[in-house]
Write a protein that binds this DNA or RNA. Structure first.
Length: 199
DNA sequence: TCTAGGATCGGCT
DNA sequence: GCCGATCCTAGAT
């Protein structure tokens, strides 16, 4: 199974975002292995993107990971409750990233159910950024984890079924504060992704 | 120090 | 469709 090398991530963020669709996030912990096929992502374009944490060159303790090398995880806490998993792109000094917004579990289903609640419908187990992190036991402990090294406990692989997904673009979610950038079509979904209320 | 607000989610109406 | 949870971050003082 092909594991993307660092060069995969050292490319323009939108390209990486589209290519991450259909890939599988694998997460190994002491509890076992779980994996989710990515169906929805968003691109965040760094210093010139008002929706991005590093807009205007903001470089703080939280965003430090985004300023570093490509191919590592950027994980932050939102609303004091939920973790969000991002993939750092481009390279040193270019603080851009792809937010993994959602996917469908393809391995370790029992583990995912245990983490998300036994009664959760399968389609709802990881169909949001916070849910996906809960399903894969990702929190800020994974901030800075190297996605090119399976020893980090989190990495991507190609889908063995391999079919190139149909991709459509849409405005990003929850970034109304970003003015016209909120309308930029930087959210990418596959045909399998659940359409959201906003379309 | 203090304060406002957030790349969300689930429960309730 | 609306709203509260919950706490960290960033910017202001």
């Amino acid at each position: 199974m092909f594991v993307p090398t660092r060069g995969f991530y050292q490319r323009p963020t939108v390209e990486v975002a589209r290519d991450l669709l259909g890939k599988i996030v694998v997460r190994a912990t002491g509890d076992g292995v779980a994996a989710v096929r990515v169906t929805e992502v968003e691109a965040y374009l760094g210093e010139d993107d008002p929706a991005c944490h590093t807009f205007g060159g903001r470089r703080t303790r939280r965003t430090e990971t985004m300023w570093g090398r490509a191919g590592v995880a950027y994980v932050y806490l939102i609303y004091g409750i939920h973790s969000c998993l991002n993939v750092v792109t481009v390279g040193e000094g270019a603080p851009e990233a792809v937010l993994i917004r959602g996917g469908v579990p393809v391995a370790g289903l029992d583990l995912v159910r245990r983490r998300r609640g036994a009664g959760t419908p399968p389609a709802r187990l990881s169909d949001g950024p916070g849910k996906l992190c809960q399903a894969l036991a990702v929190d800020r402990g994974q901030d800075g984890a190297d996605l090119c090294d399976s020893g980090s406990g989190i990495w991507f692989v190609d889908d063995p079924e391999g079919a190139k997904p149909v991709i459509r673009a849409a405005p990003r979610i929850g970034v109304d504060y970003a003015g016209e950038a909120a309308a930029w079509p930087l959210r990418f979904l596959t045909d399998r992704a659940e359409p959201s209320a906003s379309g």
